[in-house]
Design a protein around this nucleic acid. Structure first.
Length: 590
RNA sequence: GGUCCCGUAGUUCAACGGAUAGAAUAGAAGUUUCCUAAACUUUAGAUCCCAGUUCGAUUCUGGGCGGGACUACCA
């Protein structure tokens, strides 16, 4: 890697000049800002302090030494206000190009023997997916792919919340209001169908509460006494007893939801190696709690409930078993965490969960640590920000959600409109067109959700449609399609370009390509696909600018033409390899 | 109340403590006999406020002001 090489050479010179053995943290090497001449920049201030010398003096001596001793790497330097800008020899880049321009694995790392699980998506089975689920899905899948590109073996998992009071609400409402209707009989997608009854439950519940309050009940009492809520609670008890009629309905309605989810998952290209169902895991963790009581990590209150005191860690007391001995959310998560490590022999377990659960995940990890579980440190919460509307948080109960299927449909529709207006792919068959609309529309959506830092909440305004121009998926897809078109027209010949002199625009692209591997590593370390999105956008920008001012197919000389073809080829390859890590397909033509 | 997060162009997002705070959109003005104009070029526009640390602060510290999340014997 070039930056690494420069660091080595710089270290060698520092030792020679000042007998100073520099460590990784002693000085920074950045890529040079575009407004200055140079490729990499050594920041001299911290060195100046360490060596008690003037930065400019060090810069001149260091620059001179680098140039004299390593002329095969450096072709020049300049010094501006404490920044030493180094120019790298063209041959360094042309050699890199020659070596890698058709390596589809360029930038990726070999297997490192470590295994990571990424859990994401984790829907409830009482309502359809919304925009927030999509962010979660795209993030999880992308993180898994990025880790894979960095040498990890990955296991993608999903935990389905298929039991609990929320499911019972949909079931009760269906019994009361459906008259036996089904997704098949109504033609409504299964997850939406069940979600509709969840909404109907809440409407009916609200009405009952209002009526009780009108009769003079307090709000609290009314909320507890509302008959429909009681029915749901009774149903949950029946479910836990395994009462056959309830189980039957539960299975039937869950199937409807899964059918609906599968349609959506297929469209967005989501897949899991393992799906856990909460109905199977909700009893897990109780043994571990017993163990914890013996170890003195947990304690029992007089009523029989079991707690952990986390006040010393700045948190609260947390319940882990109810007084009736049944487990709560955190209990089963303790069990599931264990199961994951046992079942898959993983080194690390990443949870892609919204930041509203920061507290819960902190507690989970802390409990595992206190229990002395060996995998406690392998638990990592990828906490991402919520997708919000301009009016605030999305709430499914209040109907203020952006439905996943709706937004996907809309994106594909807009892709179709744009494509037809431009009229560039008239020879496509209907099937090819349909695939293209999907590629562009879903590509735009994925890029939109992945291009921002996962940790930050993002605001989505449904009134403004997601862009297809600028910092977007289609922009990168378009760059790729244009390159493919050139490569179809002008084949690459076996002419060496190692001796070619580079123009600025060409070098800028090659330098950026050189950084691809580094970028993938940073993205994996910080679990952040947006780093790749930004990288790819910049690469496409560099290329488009180059494309507009240089002729590739009709370059002045054959050598130059081959150089530019190889650069184009490599750009298209990296664009498509990077977009694959974001889960976005690249069209050959658009 | 407690814990945590966030305030950057009109808007949506960038910036390991580093050079003149970048992009994209929306605004203004241009570019098509030639490889796809979903592109390119030019232009205007921002760090919530006050201190402190530092050669250097959007970034770190303290104090304001403003917004949000969490704080269930729900999952």
């Amino acid at each position: 890697m070039l930056s690494q090489l420069i660091r080595e050479k710089t270290n060698a010179c520092l030792e020679k000049l000042y007998s100073f053995k520099a460590a990784e943290t002693d000085f920074q090497i950045n890529t040079t800002k575009p407004e200055f001449v140079g490729d990499y920049t050594v920041v001299l201030f911290s060195l100046a302090k360490k060596l008690s010398r003037n930065p400019d003096q060090i810069g001149n001596e260091l620059g001179g030494a680098l140039l004299n001793n390593f002329s095969e790497v450096f072709k020049g330097y300049n010094l501006i206000k404490g920044f030493l800008n180094l120019e790298v020899q063209d041959s360094f880049f042309t050699l890199m190009l020659e070596k890698n321009f058709q390596d589809v694995c360029f930038g990726k790392s070999p297997m490192n023997g470590k295994k990571v699980m990424v859990e994401y998506s984790s829907p409830n089975t009482n309502k359809p997916l919304h925009l927030g689920h999509l962010r979660n899905n795209f993030l999880g899948r992308s993180i898994a792919e990025i880790l894979k590109a960095n040498g990890y073996e990955t296991v993608k998992t999903c935990i389905v919340n298929d039991r609990g009071i929320h499911i019972c609400k949909s079931m009760i409402a269906w019994q009361l209001f459906a008259n036996g209707a089904t997704p098949q009989s109504t033609g409504i997608k299964g997850d939406h169908f069940v979600g509709d009854y969840y909404v109907k439950f809440n409407d009916a519940y609200k009405k009952e509460v209002e009526e009780l309050v009108a009769k003079g009940k307090s709000k609290d009492a009314a909320e507890k006494e509302a008959p429909i809520m009681k029915a749901a609670q009774d149903m949950l008890l029946d479910w836990e007893k395994g009462e056959s009629k309830v189980m039957e309905l539960w299975k039937k309605m869950n199937e409807w939801v899964y059918d609906g989810f599968n349609v959506t998952y297929t469209r967005i290209g989501s897949d899991f190696a393992k799906t856990y169902y909460e109905s199977n895991t909700y009893l897990l963790g109780r043994d571990t709690v017993e163990l914890g009581i013996q170890k003195g990590v947990f304690y029992k209150k007089e009523d029989g409930s079991v707690w952990i005191d986390l006040t010393a860690d700045g948190l609260d007391e947390k319940l882990v078993l109810r007084k009736d001995g049944t487990s709560v959310y955190i209990t089963q998560d303790i069990g599931l965490a264990q199961l994951k490590f046992q079942e898959f022999g993983i080194d690390k377990s990443i949870y892609v969960i919204g930041d509203e659960q920061n507290y819960h995940m902190k507690v989970l990890q802390l409990i595992c640590k206190k229990l002395g579980l060996p995998y406690a440190d392998g638990i990592q919460h990828l906490s991402y920000g919520m997708v919000e509307l301009p009016t605030g948080k999305m709430k499914s109960r209040e109907g203020t959600v952006v439905d996943a299927d709706d937004i996907i449909d809309e994106m594909i529709h807009i892709a179709e409109q744009h494509t037809q207006e431009l009229g560039k792919v008239k020879e496509f068959t209907n099937e090819e067109l349909k695939e293209l609309y999907d590629t562009i529309g879903i590509g735009a959506l994925k890029f939109f959700l992945l291009r921002v830092d996962p940790k930050r909440k993002m605001i989505f305004d449904p009134k403004e449609s997601i862009d297809f121009h600028g910092f977007t998926g289609p922009f990168i897809q378009y760059t790729h399609a244009r390159i493919k078109s050139i490569l179809r027209k002008y084949p690459i010949a076996s002419v060496s370009v190692e001796k070619c002199a580079l123009e600025n625009d060409e070098k800028k692209i090659l330098l950026h390509l050189e950084n691809y591997n580094q970028t993938l590593a940073v993205a994996a370390d910080s679990l952040d696909p947006s780093i790749i999105a930004n990288y790819l956008f910049q690469l496409a920008q560099f290329f488009n600018s180059f494309y507009a001012s240089h002729s590739i197919g009709n370059a002045e000389t054959e050598e130059k033409k081959q150089l530019r073809l190889k650069i184009s080829k490599m750009v298209s390859m990296v664009l498509s390899s990077g977009m694959e890590l974001l889960g976005i397909k690249m069209p050959e033509k658009m």
